[in-house]
Design a protein around this nucleic acid. Structure first.
Length: 111
DNA sequence: TGTTTGACCACGG
DNA sequence: GCCGTGGCCAAAC
């Protein structure tokens, strides 16, 4: 399983209405850096089953929105799941933040 | 082989 | 708020 497959697995495991960060995924998978996560997610546009809109940067900002079909698609999809977005930032980010270790077993991802 | 780029992060000015 | 710097690792050129 390559590192981006792990990123996809974790991303797909993000609960609806919750968000996580590139850094959290990188930390959970011990990939070495959050940049790998961003790069992997950049590839996800070809994957139809990856909720990449639930992944934001460390400040809760939808930094990847420009990679979606439309710059607003990411926000709209999040709002459809109950996540409020203002100025491209997740509201109540600390409450909506989800860490992979909260639901996943790290030993399943390579450890 | 070496350089640039990227949906990042943290810190500093 | 903006920009620069250093670190991170893989892909593309």
């Amino acid at each position: 399983m390559s590192y981006y497959d792990k990123v996809f697995e974790v991303t797909k495991a993000i609960p609806k209405g919750r968000v996580t960060t590139y850094g959290a995924i990188a930390d959970f998978l011990a990939l070495g850096s959050a940049r790998m996560v961003g790069w992997a997610l950049n590839q996800c546009h070809v994957m139809t089953d990856i909720p990449a809109h639930r992944v934001v940067n460390s400040k809760g900002v939808l930094s990847g929105r420009l990679q979606f079909v439309t710059p607003t698609a990411m926000q709209e999809r999040l709002e459809a799941e109950g996540v409020e977005i203002v100025k491209h930032k997740v509201q109540e980010f600390d409450k909506r933040f989800w860490h992979p270790s909260e639901s996943l077993d790290q030993t399943k991802f390579g450890a």
